[in-house]
Amino acid sequence: MKKLHHIYIISAFLLSSCSPKISSLITKDYQSLKYDEKVVVLGLNEQQPANAEVLGVVKVRDTGFSTKCNYEIALDKAKLEARKVGGNTIKITRHKKPDLWSTCHRLDATILKI
């Protein structure tokens, strides 16, 4: 029985460690958006609209064991965090591409409501 318990714990750890780590600092939130509502992405070189309300910041990082962490997945994770707090736009503020230290795309983004 104890062996089975250890197998469950190890399996849960391995399954959760394949995803990128998401951390966010939310300063204001609204009602969550539906999972399929569009979230606009503003790139590094695009200006944040003057009328945008800042809801917080989200960071998508590598856990060290992440495997599913291409740019699209990192972007989807950031959009999901935005939807949770009612944000309909994210402004990418930092993008680190895979390198010698990490095979993952790493993003910082500001969550906005326009």
Rank of each mutant, 00 (worst) to 15 (best):
K3F: 10
L4K: 03
H5E: 07
H6W: 06
Y8I: 09
Y8H: 14
I10P: 01
S11W: 11
A12N: 11
F13E: 08
S17K: 11
C18V: 15
P20N: 12
P20A: 11
K21Y: 12
I22N: 06
S24G: 09
S24M: 11
L25S: 13
I26M: 12
I26R: 08
I26T: 15
K28N: 08
K28G: 01
D29F: 03
Y30P: 07
Y30K: 09
S32P: 14
S32F: 07
K34I: 00
Y35I: 06
D36T: 07
D36Y: 06
E37Q: 09
V39G: 04
V39W: 02
V41D: 11
G43T: 05
N45W: 06
Q47R: 14
Q48W: 00
Q48R: 11
N51Y: 07
A52R: 04
A52I: 08
A52S: 15
A52C: 14
V54K: 12
V54S: 12
L55N: 01
G56T: 03
V57A: 08
V58T: 13
V58I: 14
V58S: 01
V58G: 07
K59D: 14
K59L: 11
K59V: 12
V60R: 08
V60M: 12
D62L: 11
T63F: 07
F65D: 03
F65Y: 13
F65Q: 06
S66H: 10
S66V: 07
K68Y: 14
K68E: 15
C69K: 05
Y71P: 04
E72K: 14
I73N: 08
A74N: 01
L75V: 11
D76V: 00
D76A: 12
A78W: 00
A78I: 04
K79W: 05
A82I: 02
K84E: 06
V85G: 07
G86C: 06
G87T: 01
N88P: 03
I90M: 04
I90H: 00
I92D: 08
T93Y: 09
T93N: 10
H95P: 05
K97D: 05
L100V: 10
S102C: 14
C104F: 09
H105V: 02
R106Q: 15
A109M: 08
T110C: 00
I111N: 03
K113H: 11
